[in-house]
Amino acid sequence: MADLLHEHPFFKGMDESHLDFIAGCGENHIYNAGDYIARENEPADHFYLIRAGQVAVECFVPNYGAICLQTLHDNDIFGWSWLFPPYMWTFDARAVDEVHAIRLDGKCLREKCETDTAMGAELLKRFARIVTQRLQATRMQLMDIYSQQRPPLDPGQ
């Protein structure tokens, strides 16, 4: 498992001893197309490293249905809800096709981060970078959506 973690971009450059420590919380898992990997408002007990396949991150909109917010691919990660109480998913995650993932146990990781605070700080930095990237992507998506719905501003006004 440590070798698989070492190969994943999320863990690039992380101390070998930390990877060995984290590897004890991981397992390989395969999801079939259409399987829900996470469901909104259910316990968030894991985070995932996508080795192969696509995962749709979705939210449910009343009177409309599921909306895909983002599609994640090989070498992406998802799931940081295990980090923050109340440890509940805020979105659905659904396998678009067959997904090979490393599933890391959130409770195990929280306990290890308490034991090794340097490793915990390193994980938080890495997640902060991902959260920032995803917020920027969402911002761009919203700008695209709303720019199509509004007429351009008249510079003379």
Rank of each mutant, 00 (worst) to 15 (best):
W82P: 11
E98I: 12
D116E: 11
E114I: 01
R110V: 07
K112F: 01
Q141G: 05
E114M: 11
H100T: 14
V57C: 08
L109A: 00
R51P: 00
A33K: 14
D105R: 05
H6D: 14
L153Q: 11
M88N: 14
D105N: 15
S81Q: 11
L123P: 07
E111T: 05
M1C: 10
F78A: 06
D76A: 13
V55I: 07
D144W: 05
K12W: 02
F10S: 07
L142C: 08
A23D: 11
D144I: 02
E16L: 09
A93D: 03
C59F: 09
T115M: 04
R103H: 01
H8K: 10
A2F: 03
V99F: 08
L104M: 15
G65S: 04
W80Y: 10
K107Q: 10
D35M: 06
T132M: 11
L49V: 04
F11L: 11
L124S: 08
T71I: 15
P86D: 12
Y64G: 04
A93V: 05
F91L: 13
R103I: 09
K125H: 14
L49K: 01
A118F: 04
G106E: 04
V131F: 06
R39E: 06
I102K: 01
E122A: 10
V99R: 04
F21N: 08
M119N: 06
F47S: 03
V55K: 02
C113D: 00
E58V: 02
G106Y: 02
Q149T: 13
I145T: 07
L104C: 14
